[in-house]
Simulated scan of single mutants.
Amino acid sequence: MSKQSTLKNKFKSKFTTTVISLLLLVFLQCSKNDKVDDSKDFLSLILLSQTLPTDENLPEPAINTVDITVGETKYTKALGVCRGDLNMNGQDNIMVPGNDQTLPLFYLHKVDFTAKNVFLTPQGPSFIFNIDMPGGGGYDPAVLCEAKVIENSSTTYDIQVKKCSVDKIAGAVNPPTNTISFRARCTKGL
């Protein structure tokens, strides 16, 4: 994780702790002033704010790797391809190297390095995602899965997806439906 990301996370944590502390002080003051109904609503708001989902990014992987979570199982794979010709021939890919046959195998085909709104598909014009799993079989998206492009500079491409619903492509993969999250960070032209 970069130093800047670490500092941001520490700031968010301290800020959140400070806000919660202030809210609890207000709650306690309201309770002392016999405003019990108001304080209960206020306490409910505090608790609700702690259970709302965050829009935080997945942890940043090392350059030219992808961190993958299939269900609850985590994998880290080296990426051997992160290149293309900006969709001139539909050959833009992010995937493991061709000589890596250890499963799982990660494939993101027809990557459009100019796209800002990205959806992974099992087939289609761009961002075709699939993964071959240990034990045989593989997964691809059961529905369109929204992805987030975290960085798209002249040298680096960083993309993530959270909890993409997937089902089997072919073969006996167990379970037949699952979720996949990943964050891939690679050097363009690899």
Rank of each mutant, 00 (worst) to 15 (best):
E146N: 03
N64K: 05
C145D: 02
V118Y: 06
P176N: 08
H109W: 13
T16S: 12
M1R: 11
T121Y: 01
N178E: 15
D132T: 14
K40R: 12
S165N: 02
V173L: 05
S49E: 01
C145I: 09
R185L: 05
P175K: 01
F42P: 03
T16A: 14
N117D: 15
P97M: 10
S44G: 15
K168S: 10
L25F: 11
M88E: 13
V143A: 07
I63E: 04
S49R: 00
N178Y: 12
V26Q: 06
G137P: 07
Y157G: 06
F113R: 04
G135Q: 11
V81A: 01
L79H: 03
D167E: 11
L25G: 11
N117T: 14
A115W: 13
K3A: 14
P61G: 00
V173G: 05
I46T: 05
K10F: 11
I68C: 02
Y157A: 06
I159A: 00
T65Y: 03
H109I: 13
D34P: 00
G171D: 05
I63R: 04
G90N: 14
V149I: 15
G98I: 12
D67R: 15
A115F: 13
V166D: 00
T76D: 01
K74M: 03
V111K: 10
T102H: 10
K162R: 04
T69M: 09
S5P: 00
A172N: 13
G90Y: 11
N174F: 15
D38W: 05
P61T: 00
G189T: 06
G137N: 07
D37L: 15
S153W: 03
V161F: 04
G90I: 10
P134F: 06
V19F: 03
L28Y: 06
T114H: 06
I68H: 01
S2H: 09
V149C: 06
I131N: 10
T73S: 09
F11L: 13
E60L: 04
V26L: 14
L103N: 07
T155R: 04
D112R: 09
Y75I: 04
I131P: 08
I131H: 09
L105Q: 10
V161M: 03
P175E: 04
N9L: 13
V36Y: 10
P176D: 10
G80P: 00
K77S: 14
A184M: 03
R183V: 02
Y157R: 08
C30S: 15
F113Y: 12
G135S: 10
K77Y: 14
Q91D: 15
D100W: 08
N87C: 05
G84L: 07
L103G: 00
N87F: 06
P59A: 06
S31H: 09
T76P: 02
A142N: 08
M133W: 09
K3Q: 14
F113P: 03
C186G: 04
R83C: 08
K74I: 00
N178G: 08
L120M: 02
K35C: 10
I131V: 14
T155C: 00
I169V: 14
G138Y: 10
P104K: 12
L103F: 13
A147T: 05
P125D: 15
I94W: 02
C30W: 15
V26G: 05
C164S: 05
D112G: 05
G90E: 11
S21E: 00
A142C: 03
D92R: 04
E151N: 07
F113T: 07
K35T: 10
N152K: 08
V19R: 00
I20F: 12
N93R: 15
I94M: 03
T6C: 02
